[in-house]
Each structure stands twice: as structure tokens, then as C-alpha cells.
């Protein structure tokens, strides 16, 4: 396994008490595998990504559990070592390409510096490699654009540059947080295809965080569905999309509008994701669940076998 996360718990101490943003999150990603992490805002999917790469905003902290990268524990590394690890072993792609690029340097310089910082290459080799990378991510005429600044690129091209940067040091793990959300549909499809191809070629593990089930369906092998800081369902993409097991996933899938489907009212899940300071006891989804029963009110379900997938729902408890 490239990435293993065990019982991860993230807390935000505030003056009104400690908020638990993640609670008992466990998953793993194999080399060459794309794990989609899907959830609505407030589910904790971005926090999971940030916790893994050690970029939780203070006062947020990992209070329990562990994160292993290729068998080595990384959640307790000092910040300096973690910084080296990001870029070298872990590539990161954020939603807004502008936050990942330094506006004052040309993209060529940024790529070269990243490569030189992480790989034992000469300046000339670094340049050759940068140009090859830019070509690989689909930047037309890389040599001509090498000396351009980030603002001279369009949104889609910028995201390609960010992907080139993330891949520069041949990382083993790629964490992509909403990589296509800020882009237009036509660009989105191009970026998804690119991510998928590059990850497969390098057999890197990819954690793809998104709210868009469509992106997951196109890209991921497995998918983890998050709700209120916990994973409520994990399974292969096909199983989760076609035969969701957790009532939340069922509702989520039903609420996604589809083209060409005969028009009928969308399935709606009433209510909204609870805020961190008001997570219900028992199963956090029970106030919105149409299939709840007594057990759901005060006993919290862990992931259990449900068909070919795992679901955190008492409906699937062995009788």
C-alpha cells in the first residue's frame, strides 16, 4: 500500500469546546490506484487531505490515529521533514491553480527549482525535464511558454502547469483536492483525462477529493463517501454508483441530475449536513435518514460489510 490511514482523528480546539472534524477515518490506496473521496461541503474531505500532507490550519491537529506512506509513519514528522516530503514523495494539486503558483516567477523557473530541490540533477537536465513535463501535461509549444508568468496562462493551462509541478519529482502519492472545480466543463474533461493517464503511467497512488460524483465515475477505481467527518461507505466505483448501500449514498446518487433521463423530481435528502458543533449522537446521518430505526439514534455504526462494499450503517449489521 502506498498510503495507509488508520483511525485518523482531527480536532479543532476552540473556546467553545473542541470540535471533531474527522473521527476514525481509515483507508488505504495502492500504487496505481485512484481513490475518490467524495462528500458535500463540511464532510471533512479536504481536512483529510490536509491532515495527510501536514497542512492543517492551526489550531487544527491530528489527535489520534496514524498516516503511513509506503510503510513509514508520516503524521508525526517534524514540519521541516514534512515539507521535504511534500513535493518529493507527495504531489499536491489544489482547486485554485493560482494559489499553487508563485506569480513572481516564470513557470519554467518554478519547475526547475522544484526539480532541483528534490532530484539530483544538473541545471541542464532539470530544464530538459521541465520541458518534457510541460509537453506531457499538454502545454502547446513548451519551449515558447517556458519563460511565461502564471498570469499569462488561462485557467485550464494553469492547472496543467500545477499538475506538471506536482509530478516534477515523481511522487508516489498525488493528492488532488477539487482539481477541476474551478474549470469549465470542456476543460474539466481534459484535465480529468490527463490526471488519469499520468497517474497510471507512473503507477502513483492518487487521492482525488471532489464533490462531483461525475468526476469520480470517470476517474476513480474506488470511492470513499464521507459524511460529517466519517467515511460512511467505501467500495469500487461501479458498486457505489450503481448499488449504493448507505442511505446517504443512495440519496446522494438520486439527487444528481442526469442528462436524457426522463424528467422526474430529483430525490432529495431533507435538511443539511450538521455543523461540527452539532453532530448528532448515534449515526450522524439519522436525523435526515428515511430508513432510521432505534439503534441509529444512540449507537454509532462503524464500517461493516454490505454486499461488495463497506458501509457504516446498522441496516447492514449481521443479525
Amino acid at each position: 500500500m502506498t498510503l495507509e490511514v488508520r483511525d485518523l482523528r482531527v480536532e479543532f480546539p476552540t473556546r467553545r469546546g473542541t470540535l471533531t472534524a474527522l473521527d476514525g477515518v481509515s483507508f488505504s490506496i495502492a500504487p496505481g490506484e485512484v481513490l475518490g473521496v467524495v462528500g458535500e461541503s463540511g464532510a471533512g474531505k479536504s481536512i483529510t487531505g490536509l491532515a495527510i500532507i501536514g497542512l492543517l490550519e492551526p489550531p487544527g491537529r491530528i489527535s489520534a490515529g496514524e498516516v503511513r506512506l509506503e510503510g513509514r509513519r508520516i503524521d508525526n514528522l517534524p514540519p521541516e521533514e514534512m515539507r521535504k516530503l511534500r513535493g518529493r514523495r507527495i504531489g499536491v494539486i489544489f482547486q485554485d491553480p493560482l494559489t499553487s503558483l508563485n506569480p513572481l516567477y516564470t513557470i519554467g523557473r518554478q519547475l526547475e527549482e522544484t526539480i532541483l530541490a528534490h532530484l539530483p540533477l544538473s541545471k541542464r537536465d532539470a530544464r530538459t525535464r521541465s520541458l518534457a513535463l510541460l509537453g506531457e501535461v499538454g502545454i502547446p509549444a513548451p519551449a515558447a511558454r517556458y519563460g511565461h508568468y502564471p498570469h499569462q496562462f488561462s485557467g485550464g493551462m494553469r492547472q496543467r502547469v500545477v499538475i506538471a509541478l506536482a509530478l516534477a519529482a515523481e511522487p508516489r502519492l498525488l493528492i488532488a483536492d477539487e482539481p477541476t472545480t474551478a474549470l469549465d466543463v470542456s476543460i474539466q474533461a481534459q484535465i480529468i483525462a490527463l490526471l488519469k493517464r499520468l497517474a497510471a503511467e507512473r503507477s502513483a497512488a492518487v487521492m482525488l477529493i471532489t464533490h462531483d460524483m461525475g468526476v469520480i465515475a470517470e476517474t476513480a477505481h474506488r470511492v470513499a463517501v464521507m459524511y460529517a467527518g466519517r467515511i460512511v461507505e467505501v467500495g469500487s466505483v461501479r458498486d457505489v454508483i450503481h448499488a449504493p448501500k448507505h442511505p446517504y449514498t443512495v440519496g446522494l446518487m438520486g439527487s444528481i441530475p442526469r442528462i436524457a433521463a426522463k424528467r422526474s423530481p430529483l430525490v432529495q435528502i431533507d435538511g443539511a449536513m450538521p455543523r461540527l458543533n452539532a453532530i448528532p449522537p448515534g449515526c450522524a446521518f439519522h436525523p435526515r435518514c428515511v430508513r432510521r430505526f432505534e439503534r441509529c439514534f444512540d449507537e454509532r455504526p462503524d464500517l461493516m460489510a454490505a454486499g461488495a462494499s463497506l458501509a457504516a450503517c446498522w441496516l447492514h449489521a449481521a443479525a
Partner: peptide
């Protein structure tokens, strides 16, 4: 046609798609 082709396919039918070209 291009826009429709770019919409992610939830059904995972594996339908052939013309790759989208260029940007606005």
C-alpha cells in the same frame, strides 16, 4: 455536441467520446 461530450458519464457506459479541443 462538444459540451455534451464533456459531461462526466455517471452511467459509466464507456461510450466513445470525442476529446474536447482547446479553450474559450
Amino acid at each position: 455536441r462538444m459540451l455534451l461530450d464533456a459531461v462526466p458519464d455517471l452511467g459509466m457506459s464507456g461510450r466513445p467520446r470525442t476529446p474536447v479541443r482547446g479553450e474559450v
